[in-house]
Design a protein around this nucleic acid. Structure first.
Lengths: 348, 348
DNA sequence: ATGAAAGCGCTAACAT
DNA sequence: ATGTTAGCGCTTTCAT
């Protein structure tokens, strides 16, 4: 026997479909007798009825679905956020439609089109570039959008961010407390807002501690990956006398590790490294990575809450930015500075 | 102006909606004049028309959506698979609806109900327990299901698996070639089919190499996590004289690392460790993990292909099992055996 | 080859 | 408080 329909339930309960609908959606204007409501619910239960979301969506114009765009699911930061998003959405009877953009704007555009075709009510975007044309279009066109771990240049949208200012400050201060003066920064690619935020936070922290930070103390990696971090770390270490590195995220910190290994240097003996995010497995790297913990799950939850607020409001709500607090997790990749050995083995 | 509908396109092209529908879905029985087809397509293009999948689904009874159930997105094996699934599905104009089961059967049941309500045409399940009642129900009820990296006891369903037999054999042989005789196995939880498959493969490999493998040479971890692996590895090392461990997956191998560290032993000096999966970051652990690579992305692609075949067929297709080949990746966690130091520090 | 019309399952406006 | 009715956007059978 096929899936029971609302009409089946209504028939079984001896009422009309409209009544059955109202009985099962108690928050509607017109109320229903407790008795009939009960009868309908029981019939639904007995037949194993579940609403057909297609029929409902077609009628209401809303799908109770939120599109979630991430740049790369294999980056371990995102799964945590997604869990948070999913859990919070489900609590409101919404589902997440997930898509990878691969950091490609064209793919992002394509996916957004697909998601719109599937009638997503809103979008949570973790993949936005600073000048992302597709996402900007989405925001300016009045679609409901929440950014997560990202911002757009020149366009305000609701967003959930970690408090990079205090996070980076904690990292720099931690290294300073250990006795480091020559602290470098391995920044991510320029086209992401977090890169800029963390770099500014680095400069600001160094300045307020009275530490020099000449141009050769920081370098940009071409992506937030271990490989790009490796290349950039080689440049940073060869061109400067830094005894410690604040990496833009944990994957870049991993790149520092492999660069140090290649140069015959050891962490934290010769150079200390601090990451950012506290991704899964960070504590299982060797040395265990000192890093700034970003509450990924909570960020996801907050993003979903923002979206639910926006969807629940009858009028347009003004954009809101939520900063989640960070926490320095001190492990084994940081130690007091020691002299770097004279001869650095050249690149292979 | 609101999203254009098919009627809008039809009007713009000077045809009736039915004709427009046929023009845009070229693989239907009745063909259309090349001229009108072109006219309709151009109108659609011009207006920026995208089909409303709700309307279509309501009419056709199919949603072009596949539910994907994973036990835990933060386990780094799954993102790769999901990427493969997504890419292949999208090539056929299908979307994936993703959900985490958290390894809880009740949550799994709930999610499947939700996904059914959203009219998923099929399911790809990476979360099935050997005796999973919910998934079994799905299979026996005739729903379209493909399992990935999992099997059910007593119920045949289409599945994509890694070739554990040869994968584990490669690991054992590798250790044997290095000179190890006392090779232990750190297995996963008993309620998963891969645990059983890998354990059987271990026994079989040991036997065919003529190696002893008494009961104290293997132990089950309570979950495929680093913490559970840690506990089980302590038991294995304390109760046996193994000089090498084949771990059920990479997370368990990480547990071996921390257990060894706690015991004051070093890897690979005192004990060699081989993982399974070659998850992201495996090469960035210290020591870099020797492991059996499982082509996660390809497995996802294969699972999606199976589903597309099943969905495309007019009749019921008989279940098919695809084994993907594995490859041993030799890194730094394996080396020739050395005597284990006499005194093992007791557990803290 | 195209037009006409019905209907998928649901909800909301209107009627009682 | 409940019944009646219309229609969301699409596909498809039937007619021409």
């Amino acid at each position: 026997m096929p899936r029971p329909t609302l009409a089946d339930v209504a028939r079984a309960a001896g009422v009309h479909p409209g009544t059955a609908s109202r009985a099962l959606n108690p928050d509607l204007p017109d109320r229903i007798t407790a008795a009939t409501a009960k009868r309908v619910r029981e019939a639904a239960q007995r037949l194993g009825y579940v609403v057909d979301s297609m029929g409902r969506s077609l009628r209401t114009g809303r799908s109770r679905t939120v599109g979630v765009l991430v740049p790369d699911l294999t980056n371990p930061v995102f799964p945590g956020m997604i869990r948070g998003i999913e859990d919070e959405l489900r609590a409101h009877d919404y589902a997440a439609l997930l898509a990878n953009t691969d950091n490609e704007v064209t793919r992002e555009a394509e996916l957004i089109a697909t998601l719109k075709a599937r009638q997503c009510d809103a979008f949570i975007v973790a993949s936005a570039l600073r000048d992302d044309p597709v996402v900007r279009e989405l925001v300016t066109a009045g679609d409901r959008v929440v950014l997560i771990n990202r911002l757009l240049d020149d366009t305000t949208a609701s967003a959930v961010l970690s408090d990079d200012q205090s996070g980076v400050a904690a990292a720099v201060t931690h290294l300073h407390d250990l006795g480091h003066k020559a602290i470098g920064h391995l920044a991510g690619p320029r086209n992401l807002s977090i890169t800029q935020a963390r770099r500014d936070a680095y400069s600001h922290s160094m300045t307020s501690l009275g530490l020099r930070h000449p141009r050769n103390y920081f370098v940009h990696a071409s992506a937030y990956t271990a490989a790009a971090g490796h290349d950039a770390a080689l440049r940073l270490i060869e061109r400067s006398d830094v005894t410690a590195i604040v990496a833009g995220n944990d994957m870049l910190a991993v790149g520092c590790y492999t660069a140090l290994e290649q140069l015959g240097l050891s962490c934290p003996k010769h150079i200390s490294v601090v990451g950012y995010n506290d991704m899964p497995l960070a504590e299982h790297l060797r040395p265990a990575l000192t890093t700034v913990r970003m509450p990924q799950y909570d960020m996801g939850v907050e993003a979903a809450r923002l979206i639910m607020n926006i969807l629940g409001a009858s009028e347009e709500v003004s954009p809101e930015t939520i900063f989640v607090p960070t926490e320095l997790v001190s492990r084994s990749s940081t130690a007091p500075p020691a002299a770097r050995p004279r001869a650095i083995s050249q690149r292979s």
